[in-house]
Write a protein that binds this DNA or RNA. Structure first.
Length: 256
DNA sequence: GCGACAG
DNA sequence: ATCTTGTCGC
């Protein structure tokens, strides 16, 4: 596969001891297991979760704050949200985002009491040079329908304001551009267990003028407000465990 | 050869 | 993504 981040650049950013060639083989192996058909009835979907992560740099360590929010389409509201706070050791490297964010993303997801039917993840799914963006990585590992929703393109070329994202060399459709916001585009791609058409349809039903659909937007805003609160607490030397249990205690449950 | 590059 | 200063609009 051609275009996409320069491999030498990627290699230079990877931590010592991390074998890029092995990671690529893993990505390709998992990518071959991605299901691009609907494993759920799109017209019967009500609960959709969205996950996002915020970061804080504190004394040579990086803290990740992840939030998962479950939105009910029928009730037009967020019915629950969960969060997780912990250390992040892997750096951000284009095409290797999942090696950094899967830990916080999965942990926040596991804390949801009511499991959603589909999960929206901030990043790409199949629109990735090795066909395994974080949304697909998450879906293949947990075998849960997922959709990748991103604010910018990592790989591929967009055709028009509202249309397909094509692989530069093979011309295959790897994603779709949607106009959730008036100006900025939103890129949707299959994560796992759902067709591209259904993924686009579902995302469009949860757009409210912002680039991100409601579930991810709620998680994004919540993660940032938790971050502001945590930043203040950090001045007084608080441990990860304390921060995490405080965050855990603040999780919202609007079920009853 | 230069530049691109999810979060 | 994060950091940061200034400006616009409700």
């Amino acid at each position: 596969m051609s275009r996409g981040p320069n491999e030498n650049y990627v290699k230079s950013r990877v931590p010592r001891g991390f074998h890029l060639d092995v990671a690529r083989k893993i990505q390709m192996a998992l990518a071959s297991r991605v299901v691009e058909e609907d494993l759920i009835n799109i017209n019967n979907v009500d609960l959709v979760a969205g996950i996002d992560v915020a970061y804080i740099n504190h004394k040579d360590t990086e803290i990740g704050i992840s939030v998962a929010s479950t939105y009910s389409i029928s009730r037009s509201s967020i019915i629950e949200w969960s969060c997780w706070v912990g250390s992040i050791i892997f750096p951000y490297v284009p095409t290797l985002l999942s090696f950094r964010e899967l830990k916080p993303v999965v942990n926040a997801y596991l804390r949801l009491r009511t499991k959603p039917q589909v999960v929206l993840i901030d990043g790409h799914g199949r629109a990735h040079p090795y066909r395994l963006g974080i949304a697909s990585h998450f879906g293949v590992c947990l075998r849960i329908p997922t959709i990748g929703v991103a604010k910018s393109l990592l790989y591929g070329r967009m055709e028009g304001t509202e249309g397909p994202v094509l692989d530069v060399s093979t011309n295959e459709v790897i994603g779709w551009t949607v106009q959730c916001a008036p100006t900025k585009p939103t890129y949707v791609s299959v994560g796992y267990g759902i067709s591209l058409g259904s993924a686009v349809n579902l995302v469009k039903r949860m757009c409210v003028g912002s680039q991100m659909p409601i579930p991810i937007l709620h998680s994004h805003n919540t993660a940032n407000s938790l971050k502001r609160r945590i930043t203040k607490r950090l001045m007084g030397e608080t441990t990860f465990e304390e921060l995490d249990s405080e965050c855990k205690a603040s999780m919202g449950n609007y079920l009853s």
